[in-house]
Amino acid sequence: MILCSGEALIDMVPENGVFRPLAGGAVYNTAIALGRLGEPTAYLWPISRDSFGEVLLRPLTEAGVDTGLCPRSDRLTTLALVTLAGGEARYAFYDEGSAGRMLSPDDIPALPAQTEAIFAGGISLVPDPCGTAIEALIQRNHAKLPVMVDPNIRPFFIKDEQAYRARLARILPQADIVKLSADDLEWLYPGFGIEDAARQVLALGARIVLQTGGASGARAIWSGETVEAPAIRTSVADTIGAGDTFNAGVLASLRRQGILSKPGIAAITGDQLHAALGLGAQAAAITVSRPGANPPWAHEMP
């Protein structure tokens, strides 16, 4: 079972001159995508008892994601107002005092024995107490479980850059796989080329850095020769949830190949990495072909 921990929120997406509420959040989207791909998945994040909380729970249940670890809260659900410019999504967050924001380290339970890996990241790494809670989840479990982190850096959401950089400096060395966009790498290491910046992350202790670039495809930078996979050509409705779905495809591939473990990732081959990038790209291509974060089901995959 892959445990996903990170923000769940409501994306207010523009549609025909009005805003339509859609379940979303970077890590939430990855959990949904994993469940739809048929992978055993659990989710850990507070879910509000407000009406939006039910909107969030329904897709998780439909995708077969285990929500037994999700605490319920009387606080409100986080809202993200989405605007689109040239098909690219931009966000404004309404998060202060929300159900997810107030997750604390004391809310992090002992993980079920069937947990095989942890996926975490997103804007949940930025504020406290939830950022400290996710950091505690990783710190307590990274020695025995493989960890994949996608910080999904949103500079406009970061109020204390120094504290956030310090948190990433603690978390990234504990991750086996780190996914970063070209923009993420530029923010982390301004002035470096993409591959040089990725190798800075490897030097911290990560084994694999996955770099995504939309239409330019994806790359895996690791101890061997860089592995590349082209983006799959499709008609793009928008890019909401594309990277999140890519993450799910990569994790699903690693699990199906029998290498989603600390020893498996340590001994990974270039061919295995290429297969993982390929499944991630295939899943993401379906997501971008339709509006909103709407990852593919297993039967929709090639």
Rank of each mutant, 00 (worst) to 15 (best):
C4Q: 01
P14D: 07
V18T: 14
F19R: 14
P21W: 05
T30Y: 04
T30E: 08
G35V: 06
A42Q: 10
P46Q: 11
S51W: 00
V55C: 04
R58P: 01
D66E: 02
L76M: 14
L79D: 04
A89M: 14
F93K: 07
L103I: 01
D106V: 14
D106S: 15
D107R: 06
I108V: 14
I108T: 08
P109K: 06
L111R: 12
Q114C: 10
G121P: 13
G122N: 13
P129C: 05
C130K: 08
A133E: 05
R140A: 15
K144D: 13
K144F: 10
P146H: 09
V147R: 03
V147H: 07
N152F: 07
A166V: 11
R167H: 12
V178Q: 06
K179L: 15
S181T: 15
S181A: 13
A182L: 11
D184M: 09
L185M: 06
L185P: 02
Y189K: 04
Y189T: 09
I194R: 12
L202D: 02
L202F: 03
A203R: 11
A206M: 08
V209H: 00
L210M: 15
Q211S: 14
G213F: 00
G213N: 14
A215M: 05
G217N: 04
G217V: 12
A231N: 08
D238R: 06
G241D: 11
N247I: 05
N247T: 10
A248Y: 06
S253G: 04
L254R: 01
I259L: 05
K262Q: 11
G264L: 12
T269R: 10
G270K: 04
D271G: 13
L273G: 05
L277A: 08
G278M: 06
A281F: 09
Q282L: 11
P291Y: 04
N294M: 02
P302K: 02
